[in-house]
Design a protein around this nucleic acid. Structure first.
Lengths: 180, 180, 180, 180
DNA sequence: TATGAATGAGCCTTCATTCAT
DNA sequence: GATGAATGAAGGCTCATTCAT
């Protein structure tokens, strides 16, 4: 049922999707949508939550703790790309919402944002713990930059599906390896 | 006049802005908007074009051809951050549209996408020309990843304005320097 | 079960109450409401009937036949005020419906209207039987006016609860005593 | 334009009227209604205000200050009946709203309520000024009762249009003369 | 040229009503 | 007998768009 919302929201964002269309696509009636989610915003939040949790779970599961940094990174990057590949539509919405700040819906999104950033930062900090607060800031910034690179690369990939995943992973991992 | 559109579209995307609001904010009447742009989509495209060209011009102007790679990169990155900083609202819309593909509006966007990616790739290729098609692909991918990193970093910066710009530039330049 | 309807209808009239709300307030399920009353209108009519009969019974029971006019009036007035006091919500609906004419539901209401008017007219005619048809008309008119006075007074009373009932009764009885 | 609202609201109260129906009956489009009145409640309030002011003006204009009490009463009562006769539909709504208390819309209604009650009380107090606070209360109560009698009588009149207005006026005036 | 006024269409939401269990 | 789940239809409101002035 949230799948219909995924497709609908991905086309025109929150405002571009109509409850009519979502209900029709989901094969149920509009009042049912309202019964389950209360409002359009409720449905949107529910969808975002599911998408966010899916991604978060995937990232956490893929983390091969104990392995060397490069391997862990590759695993995480692979998981991320896998998610984007399978949820192309949902990812577009999730990404947009991840970029927004201070919104009412932001609460849940902030969690995910933080989780991802932390994940990346931890991964890197693991090997080279930040010596100073400045270093910590730089690591955090790097985390965000890294995420953005991943996002963008994922988009590009959708346009060039013949490029093997390993190449993408290699590019990203190379980027991450740099600040050593 | 497009400035009003910039503010309006940034809140809820194309569907979230109303011609009423845009006209009111621009201080003109709605029929004038239609006179100049024909339709809402026309206005949207016009706005995107201006934003895209602004960014492109800025990037091109900042390119200090002849300088060493690192310096050129820093200049480009600085130009990009400057643009995002000055057009925070418009940038959000532009970024979203840059990510979309195959849309009717995509024609103009694809150009910009290409231009930016090429710019970055050229910068890098300048020093290490790609030996094989694979290498070229990888460079293109890297260009996109790099852009995404910049975008994301710009967003993060807006949340941490006290971080000096040099730090951000350093992070990005470091990323770019890697695949050497 | 009709009590829930009473509360619900009193707020926004027939159209203002929702079967959902009534069922919830009554603690039963909506299909039960339909099982018992067939439709929303059925429920409304059932509620009006009960309210009307309650009031009629009360008035009839209070009538102390044989007593002098003034005493009988006072008794009736007291009974009426008592009803309004106990069924403040229902009374509002009943009053509104009593004022409507020629409606499908009107059948039952007309009966009550007539009964009350007759009651009052009879009371007065008892002592001074109307000599002419005109006189009869005037008495009927007076009956309605009297009822209206009672209603309005009841409303005012709800706003000034500290005024003793005897004062109200006195006012009304004085009004009734006049046309003698 | 408010005339259409008058007819619509009188049928099923605030909740029973639809903006669609009002617009259709007024011969304009729904958005125009919203342009002029902002919302359904806005339209309702606008209508109530006009109705209330119409009635108030009529009553004030009819007051023949200086004449003996009975004549002034007759003039006021006649004005009231005249209003009800010409605005049968609107009167039903106005009456209902006059009876409601403490509502958000009540502000304007309270004014009218007070004006009418004061008018009546003043009329009576003019000749027999109240000696004690209790007497004043009784006069106020009487004012409300008198209004209710008028309302109710007006309703009855609509059912018996052949009864001459003088009879009605006589009945009411007789009631008013009583508490002397 | 510029706009106030107007509208058809659509959207979010809810309602009265029913059916499978 | 009783209900959770479901829906067609409508209601309030707004939007993109136009036309007379």
């Amino acid at each position: 049922m949230l799948d219909a919302a995924e497709r609908a929201f991905s086309a025109g964002g929150f405002h571009g999707a109509s409850m009519d269309a979502i209900a029709r696509e989901a094969g149920i009636s509009k009042p049912m949508l309202y019964n389950y989610f209360g409002s359009k915003e409720g449905l949107y939040v529910a969808f975002l939550n599911r998408a966010g949790q899916d991604l978060a779970r995937r990232l956490l599961e893929a983390d091969t703790e104990g392995d060397p940094l490069e391997k862990r990174l590759a695993a995480g990057v692979g998981a991320f790309f896998g998610y984007v590949d399978e949820h192309r539509d949902g990812w577009r919405v999730l990404r947009e919402e991840l970029g927004r700040q201070g919104e009412p819906l932001g609460g849940q999104m902030a969690d995910l944002r933080g989780l991802i950033a932390t994940l990346v930062a931890d991964l890197l900090a693991d090997e080279r713990p930040p010596a100073s607060p400045e270093e910590r800031d730089r690591l955090a910034a790097f985390g965000y930059a890294f995420i953005g690179a991943g996002q963008s690369l994922a988009d590009w990939w959708l346009d060039h599906p013949d490029v093997p995943l390993e190449h993408l992973t290699a590019v990203l991992v190379a980027m991450a390896a740099q600040p050593a």
